[in-house]
């Protein structure tokens, strides 16, 4: 009975949030963007609302959180109830506060990492497609070699070598993920490089930087944006996985992955609290994919 009830409540929230955010976007959007939001599916507007909510929470963390990030507020493993609305963890820190700060750390780091992976991967990929020849061969074979090693094991290896700080974490995951982005960017750019307008720009005497930035990148944007959404989720999960294994974000910094691990013992007692950070991860992943699907659909020019 409770299962059915919670599914109904979840669906209700989904429709309310989705419809409300679509209505909001429609009234706020500038006139020439209105058609974009008019045909927007409910899933996408729901996804957008969730993403905006996460970003707001992450930015406003010190304001909305009732306690400090590492502050011990009471006994260990307190149940849900005022003033610790979601209870406390094994050190007596407030779960709600940790969850809010976790959004800032996990989402923020994932975003920076993905952005870095995209800058490096797409630049190198497009450059390789543009220049071709030896440069393309060397870069591509090097990337193939890196991709042959399982991503998680490779990241673990690099983190053990270089130590675990937030900076190395970002650099290592960005490096591993940029190989995937490189592959995509290169194949997309190879199609574009064959076009007459690239030939015209080359004959004009344009340099590689301008060709990449103004002639190729705008035309490769649609698949890259779609990939950005997916890649963001993978990075997110990778950070959480590494944190769970103890090689990610260091305590006492709040992070959803390590929060699951720290409080895992509670699951045996039938308490859902440790699963809340996992749920937060799942919700964001789903929301991002809703938006990505919508963008992919639009970019591919499919009209119903």
């Amino acid at each position: 009975m409770t299962v059915v009830l919670s599914i109904l409540v979840a669906l209700g929230i989904f429709f309310v949030v989705g419809l409300a955010s679509r209505a909001g976007l429609r009234s706020l959007a500038p006139a020439h963007h209105k058609p974009t939001y008019r045909d927007m599916p409910l899933t996408a507007s729901f996804g957008l609302a969730v993403i905006v909510f996460y970003i707001a929470v992450a930015i406003l963390a010190p304001v909305v959180a009732p306690y400090g990030e590492g502050e011990v507020t009471g006994a260990q493993f307190l149940p849900w109830g005022a003033p610790n609305y979601l209870g406390t963890d094994k050190l007596g820190r407030d779960m709600l506060t940790r969850l809010i700060y976790g959004a800032r750390n996990t989402v923020g780091i994932a975003f920076v990492t993905t952005a870095l992976a995209f800058m490096v991967g797409s630049f190198l990929g497009i450059w390789a497609a543009l220049v071709g020849g030896w440069l393309d061969q060397w870069l591509s074979r090097f990337v193939d070699a890196l991709m042959a090693i399982p991503a998680l094991i490779f990241s673990l290896l690099l983190l053990t070598i270089f130590g675990t700080s937030v900076l190395t974490l970002v650099l290592v995951i960005a490096a591993v993920d940029s190989t995937r982005v490189y592959r995509l960017a290169r194949s997309v750019a190879q199609g574009i490089v064959m076009m007459d307008y690239i030939e015209a720009a080359r004959l004009r005497g344009e340099g590689a930087w301008r060709l990449i930035r103004r002639e190729i990148l705008p035309n490769a944007m649609a698949p890259l944006v779609a990939e950005f959404g997916l890649r963001f989720c993978f990075v997110f999960l990778a950070i959480s996985a590494l944190s769970f294994l103890g090689l990610g974000i260091k305590p006492p910094t709040a992070d959803w992955g390590s929060m699951v691990r720290e409080n895992a013992t509670l699951i045996t007692f039938g308490d859902v609290t440790p699963l809340l950070p996992a749920g937060a991860i799942a919700l964001l992943t789903v929301a991002v994919n809703f938006v990505v699907d919508w963008q992919l659909h639009r970019a591919s020019g499919l009209k119903e």
Binding site: M195, D196, Y197, A200, R214, P218, N219
Partner: peptide, 12 residues
């Protein structure tokens, strides 16, 4: 060029 469609960058 023959094909103006491919000779002009569609995003500019």
């Amino acid at each position: 060029y023959q094909m103006a469609d491919t000779a002009l960058n569609p995003k500019l």
